[in-house]
Design a protein around this nucleic acid. Structure first.
Lengths: 219, 219
DNA sequence: CCGAGGCAGTAGACACTGTCTACTGCCTCG
DNA sequence: CGAGGCAGTAGACAGTGTCTACTGCCTCGG
């Protein structure tokens, strides 16, 4: 169906790996649930035979873990945007990033759940650190900026790369992360519905959690 | 429902349903991961043929959902113990209950993850409410007791059954729950390890989260 | 120039899975 | 005592993940 390019036919060469991962992400996004991530399903979606993935991933779980890693990269990117936008006060950036986190969890439920499946996290290892540590570093920097006594953006929030030279206390960072993550999970699962209180908005929850940590540590 | 004669040989009659659920709980507890919850695996463990579960559960997912519901009942029970023990100040009971929640998530990782899989929560419906609403009611009661201006146990924390007549604000309850849940997920997944800071103890995190909510709402 | 070697991809076999469909006992009740 | 219903068994079927040949194609070294 595509006119033959001299060098690369549709079944190019080594981008099959990328196509497989993308196929998995797409299948997960189409609401098929985690059941739709079968090895053969992904292969069919990518337009290759069921034996092809084995050339790039030793096992089915490795492929699924790669899909989860791609989703984690998406999540990190979507959170990092509001977190590092310049010109806004740090507290606002924190809540905006938290809302982005919760929104991701609600919009892409299957992916969010897949990302934090511990059996996949186990084997990820270094890849996970490479994706999350910069994000955590930015979160930490923004949070310390918000905790600065001036309250403004006096200390410019520089990403400062992956170096954790500051060795500052991760406590507030962890508190913010866990609070936002809890909101994301329970809100994404629509658990609040069983309270009959549909008015519980995630934005106010995130803001309350962030403000609480900021107010408590930033005396 | 269990109206049949109580005296039953090992291969009794209608307790096969219970045996299947228990077999699933056991398999999940033996570290086999979610993969070990196959229909045939559970049937073998329960000592019945692979067609037997169909008499009690219309599909494999229904059986897995029943296993998850049993796990949720366990979780609710373990949390309710420290939450409703008399004689201790409400704030202490809250943190103890939170620690029990986090401990459950770390000790029974597979089960904890299974409980909150949204595709299983979807079909649960009323069963879920029946299990969680009393727990939430107790949590709410203990929290309001902790928020009382005296700070003591003047207002005795009576479970007050499922009646949500108070119609009080669920806000603090939700905040505590989400905070503890986030700690449980991230701690259970050993995500804190990638910070290199293994000293992050869940107990202090839970205490900080609970104290924060109590201090903020109980002025 | 050409043959060797490696690699991405295909196709088939194998054990296993979940679901469906007879079919066998056993119990209850009219 | 016979009928009916139900829990449980056993087998068939499509589908799955993994493994093992096997085919093209590309890149080299001589």
């Amino acid at each position: 169906m595509v006119d033959t390019v001299t060098m690369n036919p549709p079944s190019g060469s080594a981008d099959t790996r990328e196509r497989l991962i993308r196929a998995g992400v797409e299948l997960l996004g189409e609401g098929g649930g985690l059941e739709s991530l079968g090895l053969r399903s992904i292969a069919r979606r990518a337009g290759v035979s069921h034996g092809a993935p084995r050339r790039h991933f030793p096992t089915h779980r490795a492929l699924v873990a790669a899909v989860a890693a791609a989703g984690l990269a998406d999540l990190a990117e979507e959170v990092r945007g509001p977190l590092t936008v310049p010109g806004r006060p740090p507290a606002d950036r924190l809540t905006a990033a938290g809302v982005a986190y919760v929104t991701f969890a609600a919009r892409r439920r299957d992916m969010f759940e897949l990302i934090f499946r511990h059996d996949l996290l186990r084997g990820a290892g270094a890849d996970l650190r490479a994706t999350t540590l910069p994000l955590l570093s930015d979160l930490h920097a923004t949070l310390t900026a918000a905790l600065a006594p001036t309250g403004g953006d006096a200390a410019e929030t520089e990403p400062s790369s992956t170096g954790t030279s500051g060795r500052a206390a991760w406590g507030p960072t962890i508190r913010v992360w866990t609070a936002v993550h809890g909101i994301a999970v329970l809100y994404g699962n629509q658990v609040f519905d069983l309270l009959g209180d549909a008015a519980t908005e995630p934005g106010s929850l995130v803001a309350a959690a962030v403000d609480s940590v900021v107010a408590e540590h930033g005396r």
